[in-house]
Simulated scan of single mutants.
Amino acid sequence: MNHDHYDNAYIADILKSVKTIALLGASPNPDRPSNGVMGFLLSKGYEVFPVNPGQAGKQILGQTVYAKLADVPQPVDMVDVFRAAEYLDGVVDEAIALEKKPKVIWGQLSVRDDAAAAKAEAAGIKMVMDRCPAIEYPRLIG
C-alpha cells in the first residue's frame, strides 16, 4: 500500500470497525498528546488499554496500564503507537507474535517506517502511519 496518501474510506472503515485499542506510549501527563488522544478515544466509546512499562500497574484516565502489548488481558483490534518511528518495527514484531493479531497498527503523527508497514501487511495487519485518530475521527465521522 502507498502510505503517502490514504483513501478517506480506508481510514473511516478502520475507525468504525475497531472497538478495542492498545495505546503504546500512554502518558499520565495531561499535557502529553498520548493522554489527550487516549481521552478522546475513550470519549468516543473505544475500550483503550494503555501500554507503558514505566507506568505498568498504575492507572491512566481510569484504565490499568500494562508493561507490554502481550500483557494486555484481551485481544485488541488496533495498536495506536505513540513511540518514535525507529521503534515501529519492534512494535510490528510484537503484534505479529501475539496469539490473536490486531487488525490495525496505527502510527501517530511522524511515526512512519515503510519496511515495518510492509512486514505488518504481509502478516495481514492493516497499517496507518503519520496520522492521528483524534484528527481523523472528527474529520471523517463527525
Rank of each mutant, 00 (worst) to 15 (best):
D7N: 15
E136G: 07
D77Y: 10
A123D: 05
R32W: 00
Q63M: 11
V91N: 00
M1Y: 14
E136N: 12
S110C: 07
S43I: 00
C132W: 01
Y10A: 10
G124R: 13
T64Y: 08
N2T: 14
A26W: 02
C132N: 01
A12G: 06
V72K: 03
G36F: 00
A70C: 09
L109K: 11
A120K: 01
L15H: 09
E86M: 13
A122D: 11
I96M: 05
V92A: 04
P53Q: 06
Y10Q: 14
R112P: 03
K19N: 14
V81F: 10
S17F: 06
K101R: 14
I135M: 15
G107P: 00
N52P: 00
L61K: 12
R139F: 07
P50F: 03
V76N: 04
V37K: 01
K126A: 14
Y66H: 12
P50A: 05
E47W: 04
K58T: 15
G36L: 06
E99P: 13
P50V: 03
D71F: 10
P28H: 14
V65I: 05
V72D: 03
N29I: 06
E121G: 11
A85Y: 14
N2C: 13
I125D: 01
L23E: 05
I96E: 01
R83H: 02
E47F: 05
L61D: 08
L41E: 01
L109V: 15
F82K: 08
G107K: 00
V48P: 04
A22G: 11
S17C: 10
N52M: 02
Y137D: 02
K119R: 11
S27V: 12
A122M: 08
I135R: 14
A84Q: 15
K100Y: 09
A9M: 09
I125N: 02
L61T: 04
R32D: 00
M129W: 07
E136D: 15
L42Y: 03
G124Y: 11
V104W: 03
R112N: 07
M78R: 04
P75G: 06
D89T: 09
N52Q: 10
P102V: 10
K16F: 02
I60M: 06
V51W: 01
L140Y: 04
P138L: 03
K68T: 13
A117S: 15
R131N: 08
G124M: 10
R32L: 00
D7L: 14
V104S: 02
D114W: 08
P28V: 08
Q74L: 12
D31T: 13
V91F: 01
A115G: 12
I125F: 02
T64N: 14
P73H: 13
D77T: 09
A12L: 10
S27F: 11
L42K: 08
D113K: 07
E86T: 09
G107W: 00
A12F: 07
T20F: 08
L24W: 09
S17V: 08
E94N: 13
S34F: 06
W106G: 02
V37C: 02
Q63H: 14
Y66T: 04
A116W: 05
I21C: 11
D80H: 09
P53K: 07
G124Q: 13
I135S: 11
G39H: 02
D130N: 15
L61M: 09
